[in-house]
Design a protein around this nucleic acid. Structure first.
Length: 626
RNA sequence: GCGGCUGUAGCUCAAUAGGAUAGAGCGUGGGAUUCCUAAUCCCAAGGUUGUGGGUUCAAUUCCCGCCAGCCGCACCA
């Protein structure tokens, strides 16, 4: 239940359950549709009435009588079965003022390991990858702001087929070994994007190429020879380019974890023996999977078999994932070495796993692991967690959390504008076919459009400053666009919508905050000084603003619980909107009445504090001017 | 075939654990700037919440059937 001011709600819950002699879980709050009815509504009469088959209206009246005196509360009334509380506005206002920067969500114990991005290091990142990284990054920011321990990992599959394919393309189709890569004029990952499409076409009907790919694949695991070396250079170079792309949107990581290191560490061997020992997997004898090690999975009352180890003895993708998930949760003995990969301008250090050199450090050993992966992987994620359960790690299985979201597809209009076939409907992104919008290109386009806008509005500002502002605006626009949809909704990526700086968008929130800054600046310029304390003046517009602002803590808690950043995004937009409406009606600097002016300023401060907390989580930076 | 998700305004999406009058943005039509930033604000039009039943004081929300769409169900990653 979202109600204003989390702290007050908890006090009320205790008090009410005492006075009515009902269980605290029967004390359920809501917000009345109109604040003239009350500020918080109490739904207990419904719940208890239903359970004890009593008339809820009578119960409500009865309860209301017993609740004459409550903390923070001025008036208790009923409307049918609803019990509505009116808070003492003056008291609430001062409380809000005092606590405007505090976050009252209880941080959970233990370390959260959040793994996101995980892009195959063989070609440029596209808008689908952006959704992943932005959701993962915002969720990390949320937990960190709440005060929890967070470690962000980016797993890099440098031994997979996708890398092998581009190695094939570079060496066999283009004759471009690493030392010739500087001849490539285009951005390297963009070059590989097109090359990958060509390779995929070749692989469709060239058995020799397919055989060669298999040889490359084997070489990648060892990391030796021309193939191994090229693969290492390729994935290293592209992973770095991905990091640069993400940095443009303010996304940073703590650790890069390389699949090749996981393999050479031998995590799978230990997991394999544990799985055999515990009986979690069995050697199939009669089924179609004869000769494979399989795990029985229960799905909708039916038993299915999932192959974990192939009949040729090699481990499948899920198998390696089980082993690695165990490492993340501290269930493996072996550990990597680590060294610093790069230092961000913020001073934050990005580490990388290594095996040959470096030192040991305390990565992993997480209490909770959030794997940010799209929903198509839901089945495999369940298999991983089920494997942990079968190994007896029940708690760890519960803490292996799939933060799933739907994929990004191109809207028909956008797909056609880029020259892709798009019947009437939408078009799925496909790296293989080269269908998609590259992340860099999107960022460039939004940036360019933002720069024009800033220039137009602020002709006096220098080029460098303009670019700084434009980059903040474009980043906010893209991030908000990717965060405003619920996880379960497929994002129909529309380039015009993504380019928009108006309406429900990141720049809208920035604009509101920039205006607030502007008001404060103007006041200083004009030498207008406000007295320390502001007095509460009753006005329902003022009140509804405070009421809305005070919901932030509940929103944060719910966002964490549901792992649904869109809840916070929507709330921040509506809060910014409330301020804009308020501001239109109630000027601040112009206001002659000192008490009114001071109060409006105080309200602005409260809204600003809440918006700043939220913007930090969404990864929206606030420019000086817009 | 089995399983999952989705179906809400012209379009893209919200709607808290079943709550009071289903809300935003875009688009459309009209309006607001001598005044703190018009990337803003105001007004209007726009809905049988896919469909048929059921549960109840109350259903967009829960249950069952049907229709439509998307996604999984590899000895691919």
């Amino acid at each position: 239940m979202i109600t204003p001011m989390k702290g007050i709600k908890e006090t009320l819950r205790k008090e009410i359950s005492n006075k009515l002699s009902i269980s605290p879980s029967d004390v359920r709050f809501d917000i009345p549709p109109d604040l003239s009815m009350g500020d918080i509504s109490l739904l207990s009469a419904f719940i208890i009435g239903k359970r004890e088959s009593k008339d809820p209206k009578k119960l409500a009246d009865d309860f209301a009588c017993k609740l004459k005196v409550l903390p923070f509360t001025e008036e208790v009334s009923t409307k049918g079965p609803f019990i509505n509380l009116k808070l003492n506005r003056e008291e609430f206002f001062h409380y809000s003022q005092k606590t405007k920067r505090k976050i009252k969500v209880k941080p959970r114990e233990g370390k959260n390991l959040i793994e996101h991005t995980n892009i195959n290091p063989n070609k440029a990142a596209h808008v689908g990858h952006l959704r992943n990284a932005i959701i993962g990054d915002s969720f990390s920011r949320l937990l960190r702001i709440i005060g929890e321990q967070v470690e962000v990992h980016n797993y890099i599959d440098d031994t997979g087929v996708q890398v092998a394919d581009v190695v094939y393309g570079l060496l066999k189709m283009r004759r471009l070994p690493p030392k010739k890569w500087e001849e490539i004029k285009e951005k390297f990952d963009h070059f590989c994007w097109d090359l990958y499409v060509e390779v995929e076409k070749r692989m469709e009907n060239d058995p020799e190429a397919i055989q060669e790919r298999y040889n490359i694949l084997k070489a990648l695991e060892k990391g030796k020879g021309e193939y191994g070396e090229t693969g290492r250079r390729l994935s290293g170079k592209i992973a770095s380019l991905h990091l640069e792309t993400m940095e443009r949107l303010g996304i940073e990581y703590d650790l890069l974890a390389w699949e090749s290191h996981i393999i050479s560490l031998g995590l799978w061997e230990r997991a394999f023996s544990l799985l055999k020992q515990s009986g979690a997997i069995k050697l199939a004898e009669n089924t179609p999977n004869k000769g494979c090690w399989v795990m029985k999975i229960e799905e909708a009352g039916k038993e299915r078999e999932k192959v974990i180890v192939r009949s040729n003895g090699t481990a499948t993708y899920v198998a390696k994932d089980i082993a690695y998930q165990m490492w993340k949760l501290g269930l493996q003995h072996e550990d990597f070495n680590y060294r610093i990969f790069k230092t961000y301008p913020s001073g934050r250090k990005l580490w990388t796993t290594d095996i040959s050199d470096g030192k040991r450090d305390g990565f992993g050993h997480a209490t909770r692991v959030y794997n940010v992966i799209d929903m198509r992987q839901g089945y495999l994620q369940r298999v991983v967690s089920e494997a942990l359960r079968k190994l007896g790690y029940k708690k760890e299985a519960d803490n292996s959390i799939h933060l799933g979201y739907e994929m990004v597809a191109l809207s028909g209009k956008t797909a056609r504008s880029m020259g892709f076939e798009a019947g009437g409907g939408t078009v799925s992104i496909s790296g293989r076919k080269g269908i998609g919008i590259k992340a860099d290109n999107l960022i460039d386009a939004v940036f360019k459009s933002a720069r024009e806008e800033v220039k137009k509005r602020n002709p006096e500002i220098g080029e460098e400053k303009i670019e700084e502002i434009a980059s903040k605006i474009s980043s906010a626009a893209i991030r908000y666009y990717m965060l405003k949809f619920t996880n379960s909704s497929v994002v129909l990526f529309d380039i015009d919508d993504a380019l928009s700086f108006e309406g429900e968008s990141g720049p809208y929130i920035q604009y509101s905050l920039v205006r607030m800054k502007g008001i404060r600046r103007k006041m200083t310029e004009r030498g207008i000084i406000t007295e320390g304390k502001s007095k509460w003046l009753n006005n329902s517009d003022y009140w509804s603003l405070i009421h809305r602002a005070s919901q932030l803590d509940d929103i944060l808690q719910k966002t964490r619980e549901k792992m649904e950043i869109s809840i916070l995004a929507k709330y921040l937009f509506s809060l910014a909107q409330s301020f804009n409406i308020f501001y239109q009606k109630y000027p601040i600097i112009k206001e002659k009445n000192l008490e009114e002016r001071n109060l409006r300023l105080a309200l602005m401060d409260i809204i600003e504090s809440k918006l700043l907390i939220g913007s930090e989580i969404l990864g929206i930076q606030i420019p000086e001017k817009m």
